[in-house]
């Protein structure tokens, strides 16, 4: 067993366990912590897949910015009395979990049956080749996909304005009820 296989096994174990912990743990802070571990493991998996730019963006944007946003909003709330963290009765909950198990089983079965095993696993690239890969990604991003890139910038601007409009408190900073 070579190193990349071992890394894949360890990382996939971490990802599955901690993403399951997001569902199971009733305290949202622990769920956020598990989600952060999942994001970091996914970032290392992108390194394994030789997507170096995406791995960096994953670590900065997801494990950094988005997780900070989640934890900060959780800190705003008083979640000591978290009543009914899970929905529905016993039967409905069981049905939902069975739905999830069936769905994942069907997906994995379909992937096993499929013939999409592309076995063109390339060798380990040298550092010069790694830089070349990031460069080719940037070339594609700013030529072929430049319109989508600019649209994404407009989307972010609109979302920033919209979030401020949604979350602002009406009638000053100390408004009690409106």
């Amino acid at each position: 067993m070579d190193l990349s296989t071992l890394l894949f096994l360890v990382l996939s174990f971490l990802i599955v366990v901690f993403s399951a912990a997001v569902v199971i743990l009733p305290n949202p802070i622990y769920a956020a912590l598990s989600l952060a571990v999942t994001m970091i493991s996914l970032g290392f998996m992108y390194f394994l897949l030789q997507a170096y730019f995406i791995a960096g963006v994953q670590l900065i944007v997801y494990a950094g910015a988005v997780m900070v946003l989640f934890v900060m909003v959780l800190m705003l709330f008083d979640l000591r009395k978290e009543i009914a963290a899970f929905s529905g009765g016993k039967f409905a909950g069981l049905l939902k979990i069975l739905c999830g198990l069936f769905f994942s089983g069907a997906l994995v079965l379909a992937i096993r049956q499929g013939v999409i095993a592309l076995n063109v696993s390339p060798g380990e690239p040298t550092p010069a080749e790694q830089i070349e890969m990031v460069k080719s990604l940037a070339m594609r991003l700013f030529t072929q996909y430049v319109l989508a890139f600019e649209a994404l910038g407009i989307l972010l601007l609109v979302v920033a304005v919209g979030v401020v409009a949604v979350a602002r408190s009406r009638g000053g900073t100390h408004a009690s009820h409106n």
Binding site: V16, A20, V23, T38, I97, G100, L101, I111
Partner: peptide
């Protein structure tokens, strides 16, 4: 697929 299903259950 497994991670997607876990997110769906969440």
């Amino acid at each position: 697929g497994v991670v997607f299903a876990i997110g769906m259950v969440a």
